[in-house]
């Protein structure tokens, strides 16, 4: 197990480099440059810019420099916001996304697990249908619709909460609910499906047959197995949430990483895109590793050689 973890951790570095390479290629394929604007820049100014950022070198040299910078962990300055280093920008903007994301996921887990488990235990009851219909509604309403509706009600009609921005603690409420909605729905459905699966399995029947009380069966045996689909969903979901969910950050004007990232893509801010991709890809890979490890704990049938 330990050697498995170490091997995977070591793998992250070359994998991140492959991701960076592919992303770099994509950026270079995309038309346009960060300095393009409505106005044609004089050729001399473009030449100055190219010289400063080394864009007049052959591509393999540029690639080499970029790769070396990535390995050193220094992505240089954002080209769109000159004077601000990429590392500093990630440090500044990641906490916003992470706070909102973690809060939303905790909320989603609480709602989703409770609703999903209860629905599975009371299969075909009114609660089952009700909560699952609500979950479906949650899945059917995009968050760019849910967010503004919440804003309309709570900020513009009742004037209870701020419309946007995280200036006050109350500013977190609407973005967190908006973000949690769809994840709660996912988790509820996955938990229900997983639990139903497990409740029918042989080992639960065995456990029941052994005369264990229902609570132990449920918490010690069933929940553990039923959680597997939720866990495999949690890895990427949490990574995506930490990375910031663009829509929520846009709708609520949150200066999170997702918002910055989208703007970087539309601005062709190469150092910033690469920096964020490197950061996020490592984050995602670590989460995926954690997911794989947790499989082993939750389901004794899974083994890693």
């Amino acid at each position: 197990m330990l050697s498995f973890i170490i091997r995977r951790l070591l793998l992250i570095i070359p994998m991140a480099l492959i991701v960076i390479t592919l992303t770099w290629g994509l950026i270079r394929l995309a038309p346009g440059n960060f300095y393009d604007n409505e106005k044609n820049l004089p050729k001399a100014v473009v030449d100055n810019i190219k010289e400063k950022y080394g864009l007049n070198k052959p591509w393999y040299q540029q690639y080499g420099i970029m790769l070396w910078n990535t390995i050193r962990g220094d992505f240089g300055d954002s080209v769109k916001n000159p004077g601000r280093s990429v590392n500093e920008m990630i440090r500044t903007h990641f906490p916003y996304s992470a706070t909102v994301g973690i809060l939303a996921y905790i909320l989603a887990l609480i709602i989703g697990l409770l609703a999903g488990t209860t629905a599975a235990l009371k299969q075909n009851s009114a609660f089952d249908y009700g909560s699952m219909s609500l979950a479906m509604l949650g899945l059917s309403v995009p968050n760019f619709v849910l967010g503004p509706i919440l804003v309309l009600i709570f900020a513009l009609w009742l004037f209870w909460l701020p419309t946007s921005r995280l200036e006050f603690t109350s500013g977190y409420i609407l973005p967190v609910i908006t973000l949690a909605g769809i994840y709660a729905a996912y988790i509820a459905r996955l938990t229900r499906a997983g639990m139903l699966e497990v409740l029918r399995s042989d080992y639960i029947r065995t456990a029941r047959a052994k005369g264990l009380d229902e609570k132990t069966v449920l918490l010690k045996h069933a929940l553990r197995g039923g959680l597997i689909p939720v866990i495999s969903f949690t890895g990427p979901a949490l990574a995506a949430l930490l990375a910031g969910t663009v829509v929520v950050e846009k709708v609520f004007a949150i200066p999170g990483l997702g918002n910055i990232f989208i703007q970087a893509i539309f601005n062709r801010d190469e150092p910033l895109i690469l920096g964020i991709v490197a950061f996020l890809s490592i984050l995602v890979m670590i989460f995926n590793l954690l997911v794989d490890i947790s499989y082993a704990f939750l389901d004794p049938r899974i083994r890693y050689e």
Binding site: L22, A30, P31, V246, I265, I273, V277, L280, V284
Partner: peptide, 19 residues
Amino acid sequence: VDILYSIPYILLVVVLMSV
């Protein structure tokens, strides 16, 4: 799969659409 996960898909869409 992990690698493909990490590719920013908005960038991918922008490139696909434009290229």
